[in-house]
Structure formats: C-alpha cells, structure tokens
Design a protein around this nucleic acid. Sequence first.
DNA 1: CTATATAACTGACCACCGGTCATTACAATC
DNA 2: GATTGTAATGACCGGTGGTCAGTTATATAG
Lengths: 222, 222
Amino acid sequence: MSSVVAINQRARSAEQKALRRRAVLETAETYFLEVGYEAFSMSKLAKNIGLAKGTLYLYFQTREELFLTLYEQSLIRWSQVFIDDLSDAMTSKAYSQKLFSTASADGTFLPLLIRLEHMIEHNVAIPRLVSSKQVFINQVEALAEVTSNSLSLSKAQAIEVVKTMGVLLIGATQGDQGPSLDHEELPEDVQDLIASFSSEPLFIKNAVRIIEGIRTEALSNI
Amino acid sequence: MSSVVAINQRARSAEQKALRRRAVLETAETYFLEVGYEAFSMSKLAKNIGLAKGTLYLYFQTREELFLTLYEQSLIRWSQVFIDDLSDAMTSKAYSQKLFSTASADGTFLPLLIRLEHMIEHNVAIPRLVSSKQVFINQVEALAEVTSNSLSLSKAQAIEVVKTMGVLLIGATQGDQGPSLDHEELPEDVQDLIASFSSEPLFIKNAVRIIEGIRTEALSNI
DNA sequence: CTATATAACTGACCACCGGTCATTACAATC
DNA sequence: GATTGTAATGACCGGTGGTCAGTTATATAG
C-alpha cells in the first residue's frame, strides 16, 4: 500500500517503477555532482543505490540515456528558476547576468549541456532523442515568452535571443571545464590567458553585443 | 644514413625518433578522420601503424596527449590557411565567412577544439599543457595581427575579436556533432529545430553582431 | 669481426568499463 | 499452498587505456 519502494523490495506496479526510476535519477545526480561525467560509472552508481548493475538497465537503456534524462531535468529546473528571476523591462546586461548566474548555479545543467551533442546524444535510441528535442523546443518557447517581455522584443526576436544565448553559453563556459590549475606555478602569460577567458565576463559582454545587435537589425529592416 | 625509419627498424637517434613520432601522428590523424574521437583506440592505432601498443606510449604519455598534439598541429595548420585567405579591408561578414569555411574544411580542428577543455586537457601532464597553451597564445597573436589589418581594428580590439570567434565557433558548431539524423523520419517541429541551428548562418550572423558590437563600443568610449 | 652495453620495442597482463542474459527469488493470483 | 509472471541479479563478454619484465636490434668498443 505504501508508495515507497524500499531498495530491497521489488517495484511491481507502474507507479512503483516510476518511483524507483526517480530514485535512481536522484542518486545518479548526487553521484554525478561528486565525480563528474568521465568518472561516472554504472557499476559504482549501482553500488551507491544498493542495486545490481543489471537492474539499472531495466530503467535506462544506456548510460547516455540516463544522462539525457538528467540533462532534461536540469534544463527544465534551470529554465523555471531563470524565468522566475526575470522581471519586466530589464537591460540586456541585467538579463545576461541573470541567465549566467542561474545557469552556473545548477551544477548539473552546464556540464551536461556541453556534452549533449557530441557525447550523450550518441548511444541513445532515436525516439528517445526526438522526445528530448521536443522537451527542448517547449523550453525555448517558454523562455522566449518571458524574454520577449523582459527585453521588449518581438516573439521572433526573443526566440533568436534564447537560441543564441544557448550557443554562447556553451562556448563561453568551455574554459571552466578544463583541469583545475589552481595552486600550480604557471608562467605569467598562461595565467593572463586563463584570466582573459573568465567565463562570466566573456558571456555577458558578448550576450549584450548580440542582444543589441538583434535589436538594431530590426530597426534597419523597417 | 637514410632519414626514413622503416616500421620494422628501430628509431635510435633523436632525429629518427622525431621522424617516427611524426609518422605516428600522421597515421593517427588519418585513422581519426575515419572513425572519430570516441571510436579511436590505441590498440587499433598501433595495428594500423604496425607497431605494438606499448611502443605508442614511448612517444606519447597518454591517448589524450596524442590528441592534444593533433589539436596543436591542426590549430597551426588552420590559422595559417585562414591568415593566407584574409585580405585588407574586409567586411565583418566576409571575415566571418572565411573564418568559418576554413575552420570547417579542416576535419581535425573543430572536433578536437570542441573536446579540448573537458576531455583532452584532463589526463595530460601539466608542463605539456602549459606548452600547449603557449602555442595557443602565439596563434592568437598571429591571428590578431592580420585581423587588425583586415577589419581595421586596433590590436586590442583584434585580440578581443579573435578570442571571441573561438568561443562562438565552439558554440555554433555544437549541433554538427550530434548523431546524424538524415534519412530518419523526424516530426516536423524537430526538423525545424535542427534547421534553425544550422551552424554556418548561426556562426556568421553572431560573429557579425559581435564584431560590430566591438567596433561601436570603441566609438562610445572616446 | 666479434662481444658487449644500451635502450627501442614487445605483448601478456592488469583493473576497469558498458552492456547482456540465464538464472533466481519474490509477490500477486488462483 | 501451488502457480505464474517478472523484477532483480551478477557472472560473464569483448573491449578499453596503460604497464613493465623481458626480448632483441644495433651502435660501438675492443
């Protein structure tokens, strides 16, 4: 009768299976936040949960499908946070700052976004991939709605802004994914280089340039 | 006396070893272009060359160090091609088009650039990594020199442009790295989505916005 | 021309990975 | 209590990147 499935019990009803799937995802995300993408192993995840490795494959076809699901969750979660943070009549700079800070605050979203196309989407069955793209379309739609309002742009311009921000976010945060070089003795020129690729200003400066670009294009096209 | 080292001969002098190293890199690049990053295996590379796997590790400490070297080569090769293609007084659009087309034409450069920070740079010894960053600094320098001339920008602005183009290139070409969905029956909305992320127009439109943004910022700061 | 020292080269070996599937064990139904 | 469907298991598979004791080609000294 209880809707909780203890790890040593079997999930029989559809409801219990959905519950167990969610429990797997929860543990997976915690584990992912600890060790990152490359060190994440299915056997260790199984041990973390207290299930056998084979059981994981009853709930996800591949390691990548699990990551795709985590990505979807984090996308939805982040866009909700971002949308709630937006207000009317923002400057492009304030908008970009909110976008960057909310995205960075979610430890799962950016690392998975960056790996989406060249790692995760390979080794996922096509129908699952299609459904994931549709989730993406819905989120772009929702984000464009509020963006249009916050930046006083047409709907088409807002869609353009949202898509472009995604592209820029991937590029600008690339440097954050490199190995940590803190406390290493680096030559000054290399230190300067790293500093000049600091992701936050890199993103915000160019986000503003792009948003203003989109704005002025509309003016000259009347 | 011959400077060629047959695969069944041993490379003894420093010169011969350098030659063998280059031969390994050459075969590795051909093999990489065939199978891509994920399917690239050191044992298969060894078989392709006709050496034992262990021998590869005499020339490269890790698989990733080999990739880092291929990346460096491709960066230098591409920037030479791009620089040679630039002319005086180009429009920002013509500049961006040249940048995109030359970078896309090199089958090695973009796939490795995209994986640089979150895959390749991990598992490479720090000193090697530092030297690679210095190669990067030199290329940025060389690119900024001609960019300054082609776009009639100050040196500082040109450096800003070059660095930002790299960021944008990574973001904009992300979609090209997904699994091939040609000949699949996709819902129309997903087809539209994919079309709207076509990398070339995505890159060029935003490259122009950014270059023009950098230009106008200078005007308003006098 | 031969003996010796050097180090380039080898490949069996290691610990691990993602993924499979015959077998087991349990909960619901009869 | 017996039957049955299926969730769960974990030994197993073919592969990976990387190691290192041992082999052997070769430059050089005698």
